[in-house]
Every structure is written in C-alpha cells, then in structure tokens.
Simulated assay, not measured.
Amino acid sequence: MNTADIETLKLELSLKAKNGLNFIIAASMVWLLISYVWTLPYSAYDKSIMTFIVGAIMLPLAWLLSKFMKTEWTVKGNPLQPLGLWLNFAQLFYFPFLILMLIKSPDYFVMTYVIITGAHFFPYAWYYDEKAYAIMAGVISFGALAIGLSVTAERMFIVPLFMGIALVILSVLLFLSYQRKRKLSMQPSPGEII
C-alpha cells in the first residue's frame, strides 16, 4: 500500500464519519453536564463518581447523533477503520491514574480526566487528517492542567466547563474542515473529463 492509497482511505474515513463530529458534539454536551455536576454541594469523591456515571451517556448520545447527522460508525472495506476503535481503547489504559486520583486526591480527579480525554484526541489528527485534533489535544491537556492548578477545589467546575467549550470549538473546526473536504472531493481531478 502506498502513501496515496493511505491518504485516500483517510479521506474516505473523514468524509463518511464526518471527522468524528458526532462523538465530539456528544462529548461537548457530556462535559458541560459534568461541569454542572462539579457545582453541586457534594464531596469531590462523590462528584467524581457522578462524573463516571454521566460519562456513560457519551456513546449512546454519539450513536443518536450519528443517526441524525448521517455519519457512519463503520466504513466497510476500509482497512484503517478498526484503528479508530483501537485509538479510543488506548484511553482506557490511563484509567488507573483516574482511580489513583479518585482515591488519593479526588479534588483533582476531573482535571486528570480532562487531561487524559484531551490527550487521546492527538492520534485522530493523523486518522482523519485533521490538525485541529492535534492542536486541541494540546490546548485541552495543558489548559486543564493550568486551570486545575490555579483554581480552588470549589471552582474545579471550571475545568470541565473549559473542556466543554474547547469541544464546541473543535466541533466547529471539524465541521468547517468536513465541508471543505467534501467540496474538494466533488471537484474533478485536473485533466479529468466531466
């Protein structure tokens, strides 16, 4: 398989999955809801547990959005397609850090969760050929760290709020890029007869 073939396969994934937009929109809604959870008058440990519970709606919400947005979860015949699932599973191997934070320092649980989630977007820059994923992976991870280390425990809701807003921005960037790619893919190649 040559580079041109790989680029064609990546373009197919980008167009049919619409750059993973349904997942990013679902995640933005979930993180805004998690931000609300962190304003509630419960212990940081309890809010951390509620964060896990709220996070469980992410995949069903992404699935519903995929039906509304007409995105494809599996692109049959594209050998790169399974890689997207593996890239997502990689995030699970960071969950021991979350458990550590839950037990030893629950005030910083949500910051750690945002850093892990933000960082996991980085390989999708290659997968969808989208620089916005790489840029936002850094912005989210380092932004969450900076905010988390500078706010009090009572204001830790700002970290998931930041994440939700960053994901809304990423959604807009991914949508604009999808529109551009779709338009370009419909243009005939140079020398092609219409």
Rank of each mutant, 00 (worst) to 15 (best):
M50P: 05
E72N: 12
M69H: 03
I57W: 05
P60A: 12
A62E: 08
T51H: 03
S66G: 11
F52G: 08
W63C: 13
F68G: 00
G77V: 14
T71I: 10
F68S: 09
L80C: 11
T74R: 07
T74I: 11
M58I: 11
M50W: 13
P79Q: 04
K67M: 12
W63S: 12
F68M: 06
L59V: 15
N78S: 04
K70A: 04
I57M: 14
L80Q: 05
N78P: 02
K67N: 15
V75M: 07
V75G: 07
M50N: 06
E72Y: 10
G55H: 06
L80H: 06
P79R: 06
A62Y: 06
L64G: 00
A62T: 08
T51D: 02
P60T: 12
L64S: 00
L64N: 00
T51C: 01
S66W: 13
T71F: 08
T51V: 02
K76L: 00
M50G: 04
S66C: 13
F52H: 05
M69C: 04
K76R: 02
L61A: 11
G77C: 02
E72A: 14
W63K: 15
K70W: 11
T74C: 01
M50Q: 00
I53S: 07
P79T: 05
W73H: 08
L59R: 10
A62H: 05
L61I: 07
P60H: 10
P60V: 08
G55L: 02
T74V: 13
S66Y: 14
F68C: 09
P60C: 08
W73M: 14
K70D: 10
L80A: 09
M58C: 10
L80I: 11
A56T: 15
T74Q: 09
P60S: 14
A62C: 10
A56L: 14
S66E: 14
L64I: 08
W63E: 15
P79D: 05
T74Y: 03
W73S: 13
A56G: 14
G77K: 05
L59I: 15
M50L: 09
L64Y: 08
L65C: 10
L59K: 15
K70R: 08
W73A: 12
K76H: 09
A56E: 13
A62R: 00
G77A: 07
N78C: 03
M69I: 11
V75D: 09
F52E: 12
Q81A: 14
